[in-house]
């Protein structure tokens, strides 16, 4: 980035970049845990349903 003078990025594209950053932060904020749950769910043999995944009670 050092060779790029700052005026190449217009205000519009700066705004777009910050929008993308905000969006990716929101996705990470709310998508991280569901993604971990999905990974675990898809790798276990018995494929527990959503309720048993989220409830703290023993499911068997």
């Amino acid at each position: 980035m050092a060779f790029l003078p700052s005026f190449i990025l217009s205000d519009e594209s700066k705004e777009r970049i910050s929008k993308i950053l905000n969006l990716s932060q929101t996705v990470a904020h709310y998508g991280w845990l569901p993604f971990v749950l999905y990974l675990g769910w898809s790798h276990t043999s018995n494929r527990p349903n959503l309720f048993s995944l989220l409830s703290p009670l023993p499911s068997v």
Binding site: L33, V36, L37, L39, G40, W41, H43, T44, S45, N46, P48, L53, L54, P56
Partner: peptide, 29 residues
């Protein structure tokens, strides 16, 4: 849920602690 690959979820409830949140859910794979 499974040991290999390890997959577990955890619910933590806490009271009267200044730094622990009163409820937290965590998952590990």
């Amino acid at each position: 849920f499974a040991l290999n690959p390890a997959f577990q979820t955890s619910h933590t409830l806490s009271m009267g602690s200044p730094n622990l949140p009163s409820y937290a859910f965590s998952a590990l794979f």
